[in-house]
Design a protein around this nucleic acid. Structure first.
Lengths: 242, 242
DNA sequence: GTCGTTTCTATTGTCGACAATTCTGATTGG
DNA sequence: CCAATCAGAATTGTCGACAATAGAAACGAC
């Protein structure tokens, strides 16, 4: 007796065989983005069955993805009560910025010490080009470029652990950075800071580059509070487009 | 028709009702310790069913725990091939030490800036007492005290994110630290470094404390290589006691 | 004897089921 | 009107089942 074989690759009935994309990684990435963008409201309880239905999978891959996101600090967990969205508060942002500043300083110093002239020149060129096109970028795109600038330096440091930790911080502060990018867009002074950092790196001036980087990242508590205010407004107003 | 109700809290048939301990957290903690101590050999494939049988649970909690450990970098994962023990190599240890040095420097500086006199005095007293008892401690216990010293400072920094990241690094280098502790045990000079750091903190001498901390943590590539050699020997000889 | 192919076996990925626990809200007593 | 209590509903924790995939072994051609 033949039992009907389970429909493989469900839903993806388009002819193009580009790539099946395993559901596990896909689910993880999808939930990760939701958490990064606060598509869950702060401290909101996350319903596993609802999320599973929304993504057309069972609870198993959902739970595995959520567990991972717990250790990435994007999600909270209480035993027998389930998963919750992380909070959204000033202290965390200030503390993360402090750690980030230290790591990014180390990053530039190592990059200056280890990167080739060509690599540093490429960094300057790439950012110059990005700035020239800045007006044509959406805020999301500009945020991505901002993040990429810092990640490139972290990679040039030659220390993958450093880069990995910075990426972890980046995903956690992605949302606030989006807001900051829009704030600074009008001022437009801020993106010249990247150019200055890059030029100091080309000149192999480690102390100056580190100082510039620190000042670039350091955030006053007042600024953080204003950003959080703006962020909360977006979270509780903007997301009603479901 | 009654179906037999599933046996609750299996195995724990002892009369003492101290604490059931949920299997999920228990499994996670157990696997975590195994990974920390390299009870899995480097790059060894981890069989889910075997591990599940060993811990008397199904694969679900096993997989969830393993997923968490993946993002903690204690475990590796390849889709459709499963979970693997992390490698054990010099580069990673050197890179982690570099990051750790930076974070610990920041840690002492913040602690000096924020901790009360009482808290710092307590740190000194506790370590003095620990040193006095050092000879009665096993290497494992001594390693734990070493880790605790640094974690206490991280907590005094007042930045939980900093402390969390250092704890993450600590779990990854726990095994090599065990080896280093035994190495230094004969020299016995190394633990006076902790005292010096603590005294500099009491004196609120941030620059000196930071410098001492850096020198305490910094590790030469040669030292790392020798430690790795010793570690590999233990992993492939010692663990045959199953 | 070695390389490539095919068949068989072991392992992972995902699912649905059900017990244990928590949450909801209705009811009762003060 | 408020607090405590207690059913009933919703949700999580864990399990066993099975298909899809990877790995190993047997086979055969050269």
């Amino acid at each position: 007796m033949l039992r009907p074989t389970r429909q493989t690759n469900q839903g993806n009935s388009a002819a193009l065989p580009s790539k099946p994309i395993k559901t596990g990684p896909r689910v993880y990435e999808e939930i990760r983005r939701m958490a990064m963008d606060y598509r869950f409201k702060p401290n909101e309880r996350i319903n596993e069955v609802a999320l599973a239905a929304r993504l057309n999978v069972s609870r198993s891959p959902i739970r595995e993805a959520l567990q991972r996101l717990v250790t990435e600090e994007l999600i909270t967990f209480q035993t027998n009560r389930g998963f919750f969205c992380r909070g959204f508060d000033v202290d965390e942002i200030v503390n993360l910025s402090d750690v980030r500043a230290v790591l990014e300083e180390r990053s530039v110093r190592l990059a200056i010490q280890r990167a080739t002239d060509e690599e540093l020149a490429a960094l300057v060129d790439w950012w110059t080009l990005t700035m020239a096109r800045a007006d044509s970028f959406s805020s999301a795109e500009l945020t991505a470029r901002d993040e990429e600038f810092h990640i490139r330096i972290a990679r040039l440091s030659g220390n993958p652990e450093l880069a990995r930790m910075l990426e972890g911080i980046n995903t956690r502060i992605h949302f606030v950075r989006t807001i900051e990018v829009e704030k600074h867009r009008r001022l437009s002074t801020t993106y010249t800071e990247h150019s200055e950092i890059a030029r100091a790196m080309v000149a192999r001036d480690a102390d100056r580059a580190a100082r510039l980087m620190h000042d670039h990242i350091a955030i006053s508590v007042a600024d953080a509070m204003s950003t959080v205010r703006e962020g909360l407004a977006r979270i509780y107003i903007d997301v009603d487009q479901i």
